[in-house]
Every structure is written in C-alpha cells, then in structure tokens.
Simulated assay, not measured.
Amino acid sequence: MTTAVALESLEAPLIDSHCHIVFRNFDDDLEEVAQRWRDAGVGRLLHACVEPSEIPAIRALADRFPELRYSVGVHPLDPEHWAADTQEVLRQAAKADSRVVAIGELGLDLFRTKDLGPQLAMLRPQLDLAVELDLPVIIHCRDAAEPMLEELRERTLRGVCPRGVMHCWSGTPEEMQGFLELGLYISFSGNVTFPKATDTHACAQSVPADRYLVETDCPFLAPVPRRGKRNEPSYVMAVAQRLSELRGEPLTVVAQQSTRNACTLFGAALHNV
C-alpha cells in the first residue's frame, strides 16, 4: 500500500507527538513544510522544548499554526540552561498558555556523558513540576533505562510519579515492559523504519494497542527512504506505515489508535483533530 492510497482511507488525522520545527533549518520553507504536513493528514503537532529560551519562539509558532501544541522543559544534555529559577520559569510558562500540554523533554542520557549528577538535578524538579501541574512528561532516555526506571519506580512508591511517554523509543522489549508497568506510553519515530533496528521492531510488534504514539522528532531521524536528510512532520506517515506493517494491522487502525492514545495522554488540547 502506498502512502497516497493509505491517505485516502484514513479516518483520523495523525498526530506528530514530538517535533522541533523551531530549529533554524526550517526558517526558509516552513510554510511549505506546513502544507505538506496538512496534505499528509497530520492534524496536530506537539512541539517539544529543549531549553527555556526557546519558549517564546515556540509560542509564536503556536500562534502561527493553530494545530500546534507544545511542552516546556530542559533536555538532559543541556545543563547549562538550568538555573536556580528555571523551575519557576517553566511553571509560569505552562500556567500562562493552555496550549502547553506537557513538561519536557526531560530525562537521562548516558550515551554522550556518564555523569548522572547534573542530569538528575534537572530531572527531579521537572518531574515534581509535572505532578504539581498535573501534566504528562516527555521523557528522553538514551542508554539510561536502568537509572530512569529506578527513579520512576521510587516515585511511584511515593505517589509522585507523573504520567508520560518514552519518546523516540530505541530500547529493548524488556526495558519497554518496565516503563509500561509504570503506566508510560511508548512513542516510535523514524528509527522504527531502519532495517537493523530489531529491538525497536520487536517493541512495535508487542506494545499494547492503547499505549503507543507516533512521532518524527524532526529535524532528526528521517525515516527510510529519506534517512540522512532533514526530517519533517509529514514524514510521521512513514512511521505509522511501518508500525502497521510490523503489527499486521491496517494503516487506518494505527492512525486512529495512535491519535486516540495521544489525546488520552495529553488531554483536551489535542482533541477535535
């Protein structure tokens, strides 16, 4: 089934549940990019935030594109953007705009650094803020499933673990099961289309129907056959198509289910797509 044929049968618009179109490599053609995501049947975008200085520009994008919702947060590899007042900055930004539907992207990353201390110092107040504001979290977790599970399990025992999603999933089925047991969702991006991503394929096949999302994480991780090029929200269709193949389900089912799941997790601001 080609994407063009599949689009004709879609009954629910897709939601790209994680993108970064604020990046400068979209400056020259963002209107054309927007037309392509609309033509592809993408009804909502969730724009992730990686550091507080992005927030005004992301808010301006939400003004420009009414289908866009966004998060506020600090990426685990950006400790230079965390200061004594950052939690309060994020709190006020989230409370000021109903289009803020999540805290993040936050998390842990041991791929580029082995120093967990600064990352935990940013992670914990953001998790606290999500609980306080009753917002889900968008979790970046790379080569750090064990410490992330430890942190979230301890919080679950204390009743202070927010709901959320493991974005751009690339872990093992065993790691996925640990996060599912904590009530988290699993989001698949362009890497699920990579031929050698066997663990990700296995996770896509076994994740419960009511617990998966689709995303691009653009401009990163463009799906096959555009791998290595700039990614964009319209390409979320390729992610959904690959999930439908791996799960042996029609594309319409994956589109409807992933959209339903995103609306369940992120709330009323993503409904009516």
Rank of each mutant, 00 (worst) to 15 (best):
L68Y: 01
L184G: 04
S187G: 15
A84T: 12
T156F: 09
I21Q: 06
M1W: 10
A130C: 09
A209C: 01
N272Q: 15
P56T: 08
I138W: 03
V207P: 12
L213E: 07
D115K: 12
P219R: 11
Y235A: 12
R91N: 05
A4H: 09
A144K: 08
L157G: 04
T252Q: 13
S187Q: 05
S9I: 11
T193K: 11
L120M: 15
R91W: 04
R24K: 14
D28M: 02
F188V: 06
I103R: 13
V72C: 12
A144Q: 05
G43A: 07
V192I: 15
H167T: 03
P52S: 05
S244T: 07
Q257N: 09
R112T: 12
C161D: 02
R260W: 02
N191H: 06
T86I: 07
P125A: 05
A34C: 09
A240S: 10
V160Y: 00
T264V: 08
F23E: 11
H140W: 02
A48S: 15
P13D: 09
F266D: 10
Q92N: 09
F194H: 14
R247D: 09
W82F: 12
V42F: 01
G104H: 08
A130V: 00
K95G: 04
L180T: 12
T198F: 03
E105M: 02
T264K: 05
F220S: 14
L129E: 07
R124H: 15
R36W: 02
R142W: 03
A40H: 04
V273R: 07
R226L: 15
V5G: 07
A96F: 02
I138L: 15
R226V: 03
M166C: 13
E154T: 13
R44D: 07
V89S: 05
D210V: 00
G164W: 01
L10P: 11
L149N: 06
L106W: 00
F188H: 08
H271K: 15
I103V: 13
D109V: 10
S98Q: 10
A262C: 04
D85W: 06
D16L: 13
T198C: 01
L265P: 07
A62V: 01
P233H: 14
R99Y: 00
H20S: 07
P76Y: 03
T264E: 15
A268W: 07
G164S: 06
S187K: 10
A204T: 10
E146A: 13
A197Q: 12
N272F: 09
T3S: 14
F194V: 06
C49L: 05
P52Q: 03
V253K: 14
E132M: 05
E105P: 05
M237Y: 14
F23C: 07
V42P: 01
D63V: 09
S189P: 01
C203G: 13
P136Q: 06
F23Y: 13
L116F: 08
